[in-house]
């Protein structure tokens, strides 16, 4: 069981990082961030289980979910504004600030 969960954590991290590195759509990038934080929440649960403190692990995971929801909300709000001001969600267009 634990092994499956650990594999799940690694899988989610891998997908999330792939998204950050490759994907260009800002909404998708926020989703990739969500996958990463979900991986972290899952990791908390696994860690709680491994160390024999299941309650602790679950409460940490809940806290993580609360925090990352706020981040997602702010991120999506920014995405809305970006769409409005830039007319696109392509993050390649968001590179006026460089050098």
């Amino acid at each position: 069981m634990t092994t499956v969960l650990v594999v799940g954590v690694f899988g989610l991290v891998a997908i999330g990082l792939y998204g950050l590195l490759i994907v260009r759509n800002l909404i998708k990038i926020v989703i990739a961030l969500q996958l990463l934080t979900k991986a972290a929440a899952l990791a908390m649960v696994v860690a709680g289980q491994v160390s024999g403190q299941v309650n602790l692990g679950q409460s940490l995971a809940l806290t993580v979910i609360v925090a990352d929801t706020i981040v997602a909300v702010v991120g999506l709000a920014l995405a809305v504004q970006v769409r409005r001001r830039f007319g696109t969600l392509d993050v390649r267009q968001l590179s006026t600030q460089k050098r």
Binding site: L20, L21, V23, R24, V91, S95, T96, Q97, K98, R99
Partner: peptide, 17 residues
């Protein structure tokens, strides 16, 4: 060196990883 400051989000993520 300044060219490494691409302003591209994906490249910035490459820096982190």
């Amino acid at each position: 060196l300044r060219t490494t400051q691409t302003g591209q989000l994906n490249w910035n993520a490459v820096g982190i990883v």
